[in-house]
């Protein structure tokens, strides 16, 4: 019976916690961007005010929209984002904190890659169903972005799994926990490090595309297609999308942190902190993790989005399908070759 409680309780906790942290991350992002643009910027709590306001507003369903898809899509987006975050964060913290329960063995990278697509697919379905030409255009663009970022992500996942099959032959190679247990950088030669850096760089480019931030916000391009996918959404549904976006940002960035910088306090220092008999190492780890998340968010989202113009959708497809995929494959080859070269 205990697993039943876990199944219902943990997603609830993650929804509330992830929503709050994700929205605060948005606020921090806006504040930093404002600083760079010599503005004052909104208060950190602005995303919460926005959602509070949207919740009170009238929710309009367009006349020629497909009602049930239109109104179902925001819930699917939010639910899948939360599940995604559960499968990314809970096994990781279970591993860090040395717990052993229902979620600690579940969740592998293939599942996460598929879950990662669901919020976007929900957005696309909602866009197509809203019956507005702008939303249709946005949905088409979102599909292109979705498909072109898939290949780099898949190559990255395969690279990690391949490496685990060498480093830890017994463990399950696609599990995120195993990946955290054997960080990419440990026991690597210069070739492997270079390959890992290529992978990290390509994931850093994929992150803004997953989060629909400039230069990859074609699906919502404000000055081109008037918020595109979200053109017809209002009120509660828009608020749900915004929460889902916050949760998904946190999930995507957490995934990057877990893949590339997984070490917690114990792994870094080898000590546990336990003043007066209370073990607060896990608390410390949460703080360290949050700092990493905000740093990655800042580097790969905020600084990029203030320093670039929006690309065209054809340029995006070319960038991901050619440049980034080649970078990923190069990283894959380098990491594969690393053990061979070191034995020479």
């Amino acid at each position: 019976m205990q697993w039943l409680i876990y199944i219902f309780l943990i997603p609830m906790v993650v929804l509330i916690g992830g929503g709050i942290i994700g929205l605060y991350a948005k606020g921090v992002d806006r504040k930093f961007a404002a600083y760079y643009q010599s503005r004052i910027g909104p208060p950190l709590r602005q995303p919460f005010y926005d959602i509070g306001k949207l919740m009170q507003k009238q929710t309009i369903i367009p006349e020629n929209a497909v009602g049930w898809i239109f109104s179902g899509a925001p819930f699917v987006a939010l639910a899948s984002s939360v599940i995604l975050l559960v499968y990314i964060l809970v096994p990781y913290f279970a591993w860090i904190g040395d717990f052993n329960f229902f979620f600690s063995k579940s969740g592998d990278i293939i599942l996460i890659l598929y879950l990662l697509m669901i919020p976007s697919i929900a957005l696309v379905a909602g866009g197509f169903a809203s019956g507005s030409p702008y939303a249709t255009l946005g949905a088409q663009r979102e599909m292109v972005i979705l498909m072109s970022t898939e290949l780099p992500l898949a190559v990255t996942a395969v690279t990690f799994a391949w490496r685990l099959s060498h480093v830890a032959p017994g463990a399950s190679h696609f599990s995120l926990v195993t990946m955290s247990f054997h960080p990419l950088w440990s026991g690597m030669g210069p070739f492997g490090i270079l390959g890992g850096m290529l992978l990290a760089l390509s994931i850093a480019v994929v992150i803004p595309a997953e989060l629909a931030k400039i230069p990859f916000d074609q699906a919502e391009a404000e000055t081109e297609i008037a918020e595109g996918l979200l053109a017809e959404y209002s009120g509660k549904y828009l608020a749900f999308y915004q929460i889902a976006d916050g949760v998904k940002s946190l999930a995507v960035i957490s995934l990057a942190v877990i893949l590339f910088f997984p070490n917690g306090f114990v792994q870094m220092t080898g000590y546990r902190i336990a003043p007066a008999g209370y073990d607060i190492t896990l608390l410390l780890d949460v703080v360290i993790f949050m700092v990493k998340v905000f740093l990655v968010y800042f580097v790969s989202v905020t600084t990029v989005r203030i320093a670039m113009a929006r690309l065209k959708i054809s340029q995006v497809a070319k960038l991901f399908l050619v440049t980034i995929t080649v970078m990923c494959l190069a990283g894959y080859v380098l990491i594969t070759l690393d053990p061979v070269i070191r034995t020479l």
């Binding site: 760079y36 643009q37 010599s38 503005r39 400039i214 230069p215 404000e222 000055t223 670039m308 113009a309």
Partner: peptide, 16 residues
Amino acid sequence: AAHEIGFDTLFLYTWN
């Protein structure tokens, strides 16, 4: 023009 192509930093810089 910068705003039209989504480059808001440049937009604020030139207006500044």
